[in-house]
Design a protein around this nucleic acid. Structure first.
Length: 289
DNA sequence: CAAACGTGGCC
DNA sequence: TGGCCAAGTTT
């Protein structure tokens, strides 16, 4: 019998999926949700240790909600994009107060929580609750682009056509759809990678349109490079690192010792205050919220 | 829609 | 060495 891309991918996943803690049954929906926040734009290898610490310290949403948001930021460590820690704390608070302490199962309820966009809502509903949703992350988008559209890379932003394709091929049965979501993400992460795809190991190589077309190279605009060295972002990171390490409020002088450029560090501190990642005390010192 | 938002590893 | 890339969201 002829197997489809979806069937082949799900079969491959059964034998090749990584043993990740948030895939264990005991992780629960909260574990899945925490992992999804941490994995936004962040590699699995860097998430693993922080995830373990978080789940041990805050096994339920209410446990995190009971702490200050600053503790969430501190425990976030160097994962990057620390506003995610703030939003995860805010989401936990919303779950504790408005959802009986239980991570909601519906896409709409999840989507309304801070820090949860289209991808994360679909992912939590699918992975934690087996709901039927098109889960479109960078991995899945690349797999679809190659296997179905014959392109090396998807466009910079998700297109309507892409969503339609994802919905069109989504298995009818919710459990099958959830299996496909997990499997296609894993395929994109391990085999159908951005740089050097392992087509020899790919379960759908024989059906891949990109391969069939002779691997045409990407046309169209390159992805915007994200510089970092010397940027305001790096400056913010340096200042926040000082606040994370300090357990009493620090002087502006102490904070500013972490960065040479005067104009930049002033901008960065204001940004941290505006974002709620730092607060000024009555005696004009600074600390985590 | 583009820009802002961290950080580290890899080729 | 430096650009690219990593399970995105918000404004």
């Amino acid at each position: 019998m002829v197997m489809s891309v979806i069937e082949l991918t799900v079969g491959w996943y059964r034998d090749h999926k990584r043993d990740l803690p948030w895939r264990h049954p005991e992780a629960g929906a909260w574990g899945v949700m925490v992992s999804e926040f941490m994995l936004q734009q962040t590699p699995v290898s860097r998430v693993l240790p922080v995830y373990e610490l978080w789940l041990a310290r805050w096994p339920k949403p209410g446990d995190l909600a009971a702490e200050s948001s600053g503790e969430a930021v501190r425990a976030w460590g160097r994962l990057g994009y620390p506003r995610r820690a703030l939003r995860l704390h805010a989401a936990a608070t919303a779950i504790a107060t408005g959802h009986g302490g239980v991570v909601p199962a519906s896409y709409e309820e999840l989507r309304s929580l801070p820090g949860i966009g289209d991808y994360t809502a679909a992912a939590v509903a699918s992975f934690a609750y087996g709901r039927r949703h098109a889960v479109l992350d960078t991995n899945v988008r690349r797999v679809l682009a190659r296997a179905y559209s014959g392109a090396q890379y998807p466009a910079n932003t998700v297109s309507a056509a892409e969503r339609e394709l994802a919905k069109r091929i989504l298995p009818e049965q919710a459990s099958d759809a959830a299996a496909w979501a997990a499997a296609s993400m894993e395929l994109g992460a391990l085999v159908c990678t951005a740089k050097a795809p392992r087509c020899e190991q790919c379960p759908v190589a024989a059906l891949c349109k990109w391969r069939e077309s002779g691997y045409p190279e990407h046309t169209g605009p390159a992805r915007r490079g994200q510089s970092y060295a010397g940027t305001d972002r790096q400056c913010r990171g340096a200042l926040l690192a000082v606040l994370r390490a300090a357990h009493i409020p620090v002087e502006a002088e102490t904070l500013f010792a972490a960065w040479p450029d005067e104009a930049q560090r002033g901008r960065a501190l204001q940004g941290l205050l505006t974002d709620g990642l730092a607060v000024r005390t009555a005696d004009s010192r600074y600390r985590l919220p």
